[in-house]
Design a protein around this nucleic acid. Structure first.
Lengths: 204, 204
DNA sequence: CATTATACTGTATAAATATATAGTATATTT
DNA sequence: AAATATACTATATATTTATACAGTATAATG
């Protein structure tokens, strides 16, 4: 992180204060009003300087598209969506699948994650994953053998242990003797890995 | 607070998730994209309904001028100690037993709780409680049959199902067939109930 | 049975906003 | 001495965005 100039610090503080006060970031004009600038370009150039120094991110084209980069994890809390294991289709954050959102501190689990998945069924019982548990899912394709993955095979979504047995053969193994392994031949069947489990929460 | 419709809840969640993801609220068009609406007016009317019911505030004329009203639940976070199952003696919050502290929002589980207990052994495996899991423990003497309790019998601390079989007989039942029930005659043996499990967290 | 709330599509537009361009001036670095 | 970063004013404009208006349809309410 490069050093910030006093004026840039003022602009950064102004953005933070504005967000705290209103709930959304300021426009260039808002910053000018707050800090007494007479040209929107004053704000613009400061914003670009802050962006270059990585203090903020600016989403191009979006109004008020400023977000403050906060690499240090201060017990900031986040709202994470809880999605259900929909029988057909992958768990998506977009639509009717979001059950509710759960407030959880950033860095709660060792790895960061993207959403919670509500578990249906007992196929991972012996891994201590019970019905209605919430799995913290990190969307990633970096899977190692033995990871617990959220996998979609032809519109069916399941939670299983991942094991690549051969270059084109993946085994999805349940942790329950009442269920059997799923062998997926990647040349015949489409397998999409939604992500992997990085944690679990049970409310009882 | 008036009651919210399922669809309005989705829109509200969508706003919250969008803010988490981007740092700023969505536009009407953004909401449509996320939820699959084809007219910006769909988002607009839902927003106005949410505003009328006081779930959100909308700043007139401002782009992305949506803020979520959440005066009551301020997602206050607390530091909870993680204590180990010390072989002799009850889990105390004395500093030598505190492994570390975990930041967790208030009201994270349905019931409030006092500390986390690091689980040793697999005696509650079939209840989905695995080695190294963290049990959220509420210090209480109000125990019902079937509750998962943290019990101390003569300096030995265990986690078990609680069942009062007779006025003076308590059974502490494991959830693992390799372990056997512990029958406690309250007239002969001292049983102290440390508290009960109200939730579980697994970091993996 | 009329009214109101919910839940949408589709179109239009004034206002809000990001952002480029053209300058001026000072301090710092190479 | 030239280049670069900072720190502004002033103007212009394409795009983004909020928001109104016109419909359709269904369920709930009084």
């Amino acid at each position: 992180m490069k050093d910030i100039t006093p004026q840039q610090q003022k602009v950064l503080d102004c953005i933070q204060v504005y967000i705290n006060k209103t709930g959304f970031p300021p426009t260039r004009a808002d910053i000018c009003r707050e800090l007494g600038f007479k040209s929107p370009n004053s704000a613009e150039t400061h914003l670009r300087a802050l962006e270059k120094k990585d203090f903020i991110s600016i989403e191009s084209g979006a109004s008020r598209g400023i977000s403050i980069n906060n690499p240090e994890i201060k017990h900031e809390a986040n709202e994470y969506p809880i999605v259900g294991l929909v029988a057909a289709g992958s768990p998506t954050l977009a639509s009717e699948n979001v059950e509710k959102v759960l407030n959880c501190p950033k860095g709660f689990f060792e790895s960061d994650f993207d959403y919670f998945l509500r578990v249906r069924g007992l196929s991972m019982k012996d891994a201590g994953i019970m019905e209605d548990d919430l799995i913290a899912v990190k969307k990633t394709q970096e899977i190692k053998n033995g990871d617990i993955v959220i996998a979609r095979i032809e519109d069916e979504v399941t939670v299983k242990y991942f094991q690549r047995s051969a270059p084109n053969i993946v085994h999805l193994k349940p942790a329950n003797e009442d269920f059997s392994d799923i062998e997926v031949n990647l040349e015949e069947t489409e397998l999409y890995i939604e992500g992997k489990s990085v944690g679990l929460i049970r409310e009882n």
